[in-house]
Nucleic acid binder design. Structure first.
Lengths: 199, 199, 199, 199
DNA sequence: TCGTAAGCGAGACGGTACGTCGCGTCTTGTG
DNA sequence: CACAAGACGCGACGTACCGTCTCGCTTACGA
């Protein structure tokens, strides 16, 4: 999702990559993404706005989607960490509410959509996206495991299926947009998951 | 999703549209889609392979996604009609099983994905896709309504939420591909929906 | 030196090439050539100034030099035809005087130079240039032949060598620019050629 | 034509320039020039093949043509010195024969052509080339002057015009390549020059 | 039966963006 | 300080498709 060799060989020969250029590119991408949308976004335009050679961008990201991925990560700095209130049900409700709120911010929906779109077209980026998705699943998985250990959730539930039941409808509405992603829907999702899997 | 004025003015002036050209275009699209993937698909390439002028394609479909939509329809002839066995639960299980089976056919997944991708980029096509999605939802809605009337399902369920719980995870796995769309998952989905909403 | 298939199949399939675009390209080339010089001339710049797609230029000329060739031909409309005054010596003097005068016009020297430069780098264009050069030699060859027939020049001269003795120093001074191409030099060249080959 | 400050301050501060690098650059240039031609020659390519930083080349030569000039000098070690046999006519014949022979060596023609091409595009290099050309003219000028003093050539000839009559056709055939640069042509050139200017 | 209106293939058109190359300059660490 | 390595801003390259626009030619209806 990010520049390709983040923390590799600490010193390789030649001039090191400019962090200034790096930041300028990411900023320009966010700008264009939220202003004109994914369509208007091109390596050409990003280079122009960032005051950077196209090569400098290609050196770091190999596709538009990968670039947008970095910009998205930049946009959603707050990472919705595991709340861990001690109550698994409360944790789930909190996490979902935050997720559904963050998605209201302008540009976030567009970014997520463009990433899914890119993933359908570029298998390499699909892998990267899967990695990102998995990291989000892991947070919920942790909450569920904790809930089971604490006896707050029944022991025989299948976490992965449960997670699909939460994130599935979330992405579904996000992508198809046949219905809003509001806090009521967030609550409903948790309710149904708990009724299905909880004690 | 299809050629844009299917059953319009039954007879309009001038030379009628060539069904030969029409078929050649769809065939070429399916060919390219399953052979080289969505990436290699372009109006230019389709026209070349079909031996057809670009204009002739533009006259019928206004976007790549719309064109792929036609190809998809071509591929999935069977349209998963409402089973109506008399038992709502049996109907649901049957429908889901068919849905999950159809998606195994080569090219179908690719077509669905490309359509979702296109929808993220082209609002007009998003509307078309939403129409298609809605038609699929309507089938389930009918089953659910029938189940309630017959007393097979409890009366206070919200059909649309229930549908989200089924189709959500379906699309989620289809698009993210983090887990397979097998018949076991189909069964699990119906189980959870029923446990959540059924009596 | 010109667009590649001048008077071929009078009607080939598809939209015919636009003469408007053609002229716009040539004009833009002449403009840029005489204004900013050969260096500043690029397909990119010509396309921009002519309001034309780059492809449209590439379709007609395959290299910068070939393009400049067309522009040059456009610039030197007057083609220094065979004078044929009845007197071979007079003809030669007249032709040379005209040649040396035409080369004074701004841009002509630059165009000729750039063509020679391109010919050194691109064998294909070298062939084209050779064709142009040969056409100029033919004019002189005709004059000489006529002079021999009329008994104005002695019979045993070798026309091609004689022509080398005239055009050789001409191009030499044109390219190296170590001395001016003035009318005195023109006269001297004819004098020496005649002293060397005449009766 | 050569490295720009050959015999400058014999000892200047800092690390002295590596003669190893210098030679590697020239060798790589000759290699590329004779192998892939002038087109494939670029500072970038030379640096890569020589295993040298681009800067190191720029430090020594300021243009592609200047660099090729050095390579040319490397290729043509023998410099065709003034023969001075005592007989001006014999001297001229000898010099021309040598000149026409040297040009047969592979790569020499290409180098000369590329230098002329570069001179048409880069005024600075044109000056350098003019300097080189003048040095070659000076040799002939000396022979002619000596011939006049010795009474072997008539006193009223204009040396510079005479030289144009020899070198002009030489370069003409070299650059346009409409006819070969063989020894017969060498002889013919001297013959005609003498008939034109000699007693 | 014949005009006329649209469809047809081909392919050129003005564009935008692509991904690459080379330029000449700059910044690293190493000698 | 020179050197190799290589990143940098830049500008041009030649190509791919876009969606539109002629061409000359069917095709088929309705006047």
């Amino acid at each position: 999702m990010d520049a390709d060799e983040e923390a590799q060989t600490p010193a390789r020969p030649g001039r090191p990559r400019s962090t200034v250029a790096h930041q300028a590119i990411v900023d320009a991408t966010v700008d264009l993404l939220t202003t004109d949308g994914y369509q208007a976004l091109s390596f050409e335009a990003v280079a122009a706005r960032a005051g950077v050679g196209k090569r400098t961008i290609y050196r770091r990201w190999k596709s538009k989607g990968a670039l947008v991925g970095a910009a998205y990560t930049e946009m959603v700095q707050r990472r919705h960490p595991d709340p861990d209130t001690g109550d698994a049900v409360k944790d789930l409700r909190l996490l979902l509410r935050r997720l559904f709120t963050s998605v209201q911010a302008p540009g976030v929906t567009a970014a997520l959509r463009s990433m899914v779109a890119e993933a359908q077209l570029d298998p390499d980026f699909a892998t990267e996206l899967r990695r990102f998705v998995e990291s989000r699943r892991e947070v919920v998985r942790t909450i569920l495991r904790r809930g089971i250990e604490r006896g707050q959730l029944r022991a025989d539930l299948d976490p992965d299926t449960a997670i699909d039941l939460v994130f599935g409808p979330y992405w579904y509405r996000l992508l198809i947009a046949h219905a809003p992603l509001d806090s009521r829907f967030a609550a409903t999702l948790v309710d149904h998951m708990l009724r299905g899997i909880g004690q």
